[in-house]
Amino acid sequence: MAISPEHQIYTELFSDSPDMAVEFLRGLGVEVPDYRRSEITSCDLGHVDPVERRSDVAIMLRGPSPEDPFDKLMGVIVEVQRDESERKRFTWPEYLACLRSRHECPVSLLVICPRQSVADWYAEPIALGHPGFVLHPLVVGPSDIPIVTDPATVAESPTLGVLSAAAHGAGRSDVLDALHTGLSGIAPEQATKYIGYSLHLLSDTNGQKALEKLMMADTFEYTSAWTESLEAKGEAKMLLRILRAQGVEVTEDARERITGCQDLTQLEAWADRVPSITSIDQLFDE
């Protein structure tokens, strides 16, 4: 199944700002160790059937231990869920167990849901069957996302500003004003990207129209190019998953060619070819 632009945007936000995931965990009462840096780590969490065993974002928190000044202190798995899926109740415990086993450190699961009804559904505990072995997903819905009305906060954390706009901007002009003003203080290419994200997440709402009106007097040159790029990135990620599932070894050169392709038609043509190939070179045969 293709990755939707909305899903990809939320994934990109937490990939851009892994510390934001930590702040949400702390807000949910999770005790997070004092760490020196956060980094994105591999999202592949299995050996077979990688399509089912790949999280959206995996984060590693590193800090001092008796053995290492940048030891692995805690892992965080971020999952974006737009709709209800009973299957996730079976795969999420495996995600946690795999990352914990691989890095030998505690791991937490953070679920981001753009819709409150979906967030409430995923908040139910998951009983694994073993006595006392119950997973309680840590879920963030729109009601858990701060209402950001301070432009300085947006400038400091643009990803949080986008999340706030997506959750509350349809009904609050002060949130959009803060986003618009705050993004004017960061690098123009970054501001353009986050404006594009916000416009898409506010699609078909009064918030989208209000933000577009604010943009009319600006020099931001946002076009559909960012959405096309986002869709291409999602298609490329899905193509790589399909290749792994088919047992086709992907060389570094092939990976770079696939992820660097911005032509959706070409990516779809490659995906259609996967079932009939046995080597990566055959994928690119004309």
Rank of each mutant, 00 (worst) to 15 (best):
A254W: 02
L214K: 14
W226I: 15
V32G: 01
A170L: 04
L160E: 03
S15C: 12
A119I: 15
S4V: 05
R54L: 01
A21W: 00
S143F: 02
A269K: 08
A155E: 13
F133D: 13
R273N: 06
T159Q: 12
P114K: 09
K213A: 15
L109S: 12
H136I: 14
E31K: 06
L138T: 05
P93G: 05
T159V: 08
S229I: 10
P18G: 08
D144H: 10
V76P: 00
I242L: 13
V51F: 09
R257S: 10
G234A: 15
Y10F: 15
D120R: 14
T251Q: 04
A269R: 15
T227E: 07
A269T: 12
A152T: 15
V51P: 06
A2H: 10
A155H: 08
T265Y: 07
S224E: 14
E6F: 03
H200R: 12
Q190V: 08
V22R: 03
R100K: 15
E104Q: 10
P275Q: 15
V78E: 00
P137V: 08
R53P: 01
I280A: 12
P106A: 03
V78A: 07
T11F: 01
L99N: 04
F220D: 11
A58L: 03
P50C: 07
E286H: 07
Q81N: 02
L99K: 05
L135R: 03
G171E: 07
E156M: 10
A170H: 14
R53M: 09
R26V: 13
G169I: 14
M60K: 10
E67F: 09
S38R: 07
A236C: 07
A225F: 04
C43F: 05
V134C: 10
A170Q: 14
P125I: 11
S101K: 09
V139K: 10
A271H: 13
